[in-house]
Design a binder for these strands. Structure first.
Lengths: 125, 125
DNA sequence: CTGAATCCACGCAGATACTG
DNA sequence: CAGTATCTGCGTGGATTCAG
């Protein structure tokens, strides 16, 4: 088995950084929802499901700060705010989807490995 | 701009799960180091750099549990333990590297967006 | 409707000391 | 050398309340 890649320390740090960025609890879910087009706050909240208003706000602010989404305020009463993926946000989805495909294909393997490990641990423990 | 993908809720949950799995502080760094071949504990600790012995142990246990690495104990004195990526562990690197490439190519964009956002925020107060 | 502000529980992660 | 055990600080995320 030959190595697929050469890895340098700095590169791995960069990987770790971006993975931690998108690896929080809600980011990819929100981005996934927005990938089909702009949505307003409450609509997004309902679509994601299970997310608190605070975390949705926090997540959206972070995405906006990094240039992944745009925030558009309509000064009506009641107020309305639309969120939309930027081009950068859309591009992010490509590698994320690759990881998603891999995850789907290997969920069974991983779960099996976990069961084996846990069973072995219990036996020893 | 047409949608690149169709996203369903269940899929996004799976993505979120795997991203959180590899999105912790040390996992990708350890996996990156191991991608060039098996390494022993202390060697790995030094190669990663900055990781505590506790976190390295924890990270390796998690990777072993999920079937990404194997742990081999040599009952010598002093003891020696080798860690090696499994085939599953190697396969994981492919989509992770895709994300890494994307990260490298877009770090400047992201940092620029952040600077803009922070400057605008400060201005508003 | 879309937030901001506050309080709080929990788990991650580091530091330190000890063991086989 | 390769861990385990314990204590502790801190960030994340949830619930609740208040505001424009």
């Amino acid at each position: 088995m030959k190595p697929r890649h050469v890895h340098r320390s700095e590169d791995c740090r960069a990987i770790s950084e971006i993975l931690q960025r998108v690896g929080d609890k809600w980011t990819v879910l929100v981005v996934g929802m927005l990938s089909n087009g702009p949505m307003r706050f409450s609509e997004l909240r309902h679509a994601v499901g299970g997310i608190s208003q605070k975390m949705l706000t926090t997540t959206l602010r972070g995405l906006e700060r990094d240039g992944f989404v745009t925030r558009t305020v309509f000064p009506t009463i009641p107020p309305r705010v639309d969120y939309e993926l930027t081009e950068l946000g859309h591009q992010l989805q490509e590698p994320v989807n690759a990881l998603a495909d891999w995850a789907r294909q290997n969920t069974l393997h991983i779960n099996a490995a976990r069961s084996r490990y846990d069973a072995a641990s219990k036996q020893e423990g």
